[in-house]
Every structure is written in C-alpha cells, then in structure tokens.
Amino acid sequence: MSAGPTPEERLAELGLTLPEVVPPVAAYVPALRTGDLVYTSGQIPVAEGKVLATGKVGAEVDPERAKELARVCALNALAAVKAQVGELSNVARIVKVVGFVASAPDFTGQPQVVNGASELLGEVFGEAGKHARSAVGVAVLPLDVPVEVELIAEVR
C-alpha cells in the first residue's frame, strides 16, 4: 500500500521549498511543542530575510497580493513546525489557523486573504490540511506587514 507523496514531496511538486525558520523579532520562540501539538508564533511574509510587503490590505496592498503573502506566512509556519518535529510527515493534521490582516477601514475580505494560507495547507497535507480557522482584521501588524498567520498542528 502506497502512502502517497510526503508533504515535502508535495511542496516540491508545487515548486516550493521550506525557508529557514524566521528569527523572532521579540522575546518568543517560532514554535513550541506541548504533547501532541505544535503551536507556531505568528509568521509574517518574510523571504530570504526580507519583508515582502508593507501596508494595509484594501489600501496599499491588493487583496490578491495579500493572499499570496498569506501563503508565504503559512510556508514560514510549516518551517517552524518542521524544526520542532523533524519531518512534515510527522504532522497528523493541521488543527487551527489564525490569520490577521492589517486592513483598510472599509476592507472586509479577510477570509479570502487567509485562504492563501488555508489553500497551501490543503495542497501540502490533503485531507489532514483541513482545519478550523479565524480570519481577523486588525489596524496594524509588526513591521507594518499586511498579513500574519499562526497555526496549531497535531503531530505524531
């Protein structure tokens, strides 16, 4: 019986590689395991040490671009999870995702922005990537990024 591709193999099929874990910008750790759960800290859209965008969604940042940035945040969260558990195949399921969207006052499309993260998790983990979720509009995020994503993963 074939188990199918591993999460890392699915990432490769998508043309993605896990980045280095983003170093904290304050007094916290990127991820923490307790029992069978790994909680990530909020992950921002950073790649190769650089913030990819700043500003509010619905003003300086287009919602489609923000959705792409949420995908980057989820990729950074997966890197933090992998650092705790060795391989992403040790993830039994994604339990919960919380997405924060720095929003212009009249912007109400937070769920569509956070879909960038949710869709990536579905592509990587299949059925085990389906999760509970909150998508929250906020006034401002650290470093003026437009989106931040955290997740909880159940691990083996």
Rank of each mutant, 00 (worst) to 15 (best):
V113F: 12
Q43N: 13
R33F: 01
G58Y: 00
P111N: 02
T40K: 13
A27F: 10
R65S: 13
Y28K: 04
A80I: 09
L75N: 00
V25T: 14
A59Q: 14
A66N: 09
A80E: 11
V25P: 06
E87W: 08
E48P: 01
I94H: 09
Q43C: 15
Q84N: 06
S89L: 06
Q112A: 15
V97P: 05
V114L: 01
R65H: 14
P30Y: 05
G109K: 07
P23Y: 04
F100R: 13
G35F: 12
S41G: 11
V114K: 01
D62Q: 00
P23Q: 02
V114C: 09
L88P: 07
L52Q: 13
Q110N: 05
I44N: 10
Q112L: 14
D106P: 00
G35C: 04
E60D: 08
R71W: 02
V81Q: 11
V72C: 03
V29L: 14
V113T: 11
Y39H: 15
E87G: 12
P63A: 05
T34F: 10
V81D: 11
A53G: 07
E87M: 06
V97F: 03
L37M: 10
V61P: 04
S41Q: 14
A47C: 14
V81Y: 07
A31T: 00
V97D: 03
E60G: 07
R33D: 01
A47I: 15
A77W: 04
K50H: 10
D36G: 02
A27H: 09
A66Y: 06
K96E: 12
A66L: 06
G55M: 05
L88H: 08
D62E: 08
L69V: 00
Q110V: 12
V85K: 12
P45S: 02
P23R: 07
Q110T: 13
A83R: 13
P105Y: 10
A26R: 15
T40R: 14
A83H: 06
V57W: 07
V95I: 06
K96C: 03
R65W: 04
V29I: 05
R33W: 01
E64P: 03
F100Y: 13
V38H: 13
K96Y: 15
T40V: 10
G116D: 00
V85S: 07
A104Y: 08
A83V: 07
L88W: 04
A59Y: 11
G42Y: 11
Q43A: 15
V91R: 09
E87Q: 14
G99T: 11
G109P: 12
E64I: 13
G86H: 06
Q84H: 01
V29S: 10
P105M: 09
L78M: 14
L37Y: 12
R33H: 01
A102W: 03
R93N: 03
V113I: 15
G55Q: 04
P111E: 03
V57S: 03
G58S: 00
I94G: 08
V72W: 04
G49D: 01
L52T: 12
G58N: 00
N76T: 01
A102T: 02
A70K: 04
R71T: 08
F107Q: 10
G55K: 08
